[in-house]
């Protein structure tokens, strides 16, 4: 429970942070809320030689709307998202997801950028950002790019971020009319992370059939993923229980499903299906209500 020695740096701005990151290469690590990195260091599962604390970069803490999109700064905490009235109105899936993360202390310290950059296989944000077809901004000393969520999560604790890139922002489209959302999670009894977590967003057409559905799943495989087979199966379909059930059956298709002391792979696959159907039901109910 005591980390290995490291050097601690406090950059004053993003440029300096990027420079330090580039300078230290593989030996440097960004520190945001510290709620994933510090536990790993204390267990000596991570031992960066240099910590680059973004704490001073308060301009990376924001939630704003422009051009039909919501943009969130990387250092925005889970609690700020949970309590944002803008988001409750324009993208309610995000506050609904934030509410399910950890406990009060974790939500007050942990950041959305840190969670995405960490890519924990049971973290909540990846499911929501995938379901919303969000994009993630990455910057290094010289350039900046937007990475689609579908390309961002590469593997267990691995993302598309380059070694010299800082994650600076996330953007997602404002929820369109006739859409509904839901995030449903079964909490792991010990860690509180997702044993399974499903984020769903559905869009209805004029006939009140499913125009499109998007489903992000976490806790099930080595990384969060979009359940594309579920989404395909629902396109243009009536929102009947039968259709939902048939579609949700694909929820863990092709995934190398996790197993631990609390849930075998077989059971987790089953949970993924049930939670997917239930998340879709709830999202549809909300879409109908609009």
């Amino acid at each position: 429970m005591i980390p290995e020695p490291f050097e601690y740096h406090i950059p004053k701005n993003l440029e300096e942070a990027s420079r330090l990151l580039a300078q230290f290469g593989g030996e440097g690590k960004i520190l945001a809320g510290g709620h994933s990195l510090v536990p790993m260091m204390k267990l000596r599962l991570a031992a960066p030689k240099h910590l680059i604390d973004l704490g001073r970069l308060t301009d990376l803490k924001y939630i704003r709307e422009s051009d039909g999109r919501i943009e969130i700064g990387a250092l925005t905490t889970h609690f700020q998202i949970q309590s944002s009235s803008l988001l409750k109105e324009k993208c309610p899936l995000l506050p609904e997801t934030a509410r399910e993360i950890g406990d009060v202390q974790v939500r007050n310290k942990g950041t959305i950028g840190g969670s995405l950059a960490h890519s924990d296989p049971a973290a909540d944000w990846p499911a929501a950002i995938l379901a919303l077809a969000g994009e993630i901004q990455a910057r290094n000393v010289s350039s900046s790019r937007w990475i689609p969520a579908s390309e961002f999560f590469v593997d267990l604790l691995t993302t598309a971020l380059g070694g010299d890139e800082v994650l600076t922002a996330i953007r997602v489209p404002v929820a369109p009319p006739r859409s509904g959302h839901a995030y449903l999670k079964l909490h792991h009894p010990a860690s509180g992370y997702a044993m399974v977590g499903v984020a769903a967003q559905v869009l209805l057409n004029e006939a009140r059939h499913i125009e499109s559905a998007s489903v992000g799943v976490t806790g099930v495989g080595p990384k969060a993923y979009r359940a594309t087979a579920v989404e395909e199966a629902l396109r243009g379909k009536a929102p009947s229980r039968q259709n939902l059930e048939a579609a949700a059956a694909h929820a863990a298709e092709g995934i190398d499903v996790n197993s631990d002391l609390y849930a075998s792979a077989e059971y987790r696959s089953h949970l993924a299906q049930v939670y997917t159907r239930r998340a879709l039901e709830k999202a549809l109910e909300r879409a109908h209500g609009k």
């Binding site: 009894p189 010990a190 509180g192 631990d260 002391l261």
Partner: peptide, 29 residues
């Protein structure tokens, strides 16, 4: 009754050696 179990594998390694694995009950449950 519901959650806790301190588990060793057959090699005598403790499988529930952190609070990420050992399910201490929490008030909200």
């Amino acid at each position: 009754a519901l959650w806790e179990s301190h588990v060793y594998d057959e090699n005598g390694q403790l499988m529930t050696g952190t609070l990420m694995d050992y399910a201490v009950p929490k008030a909200h449950q």
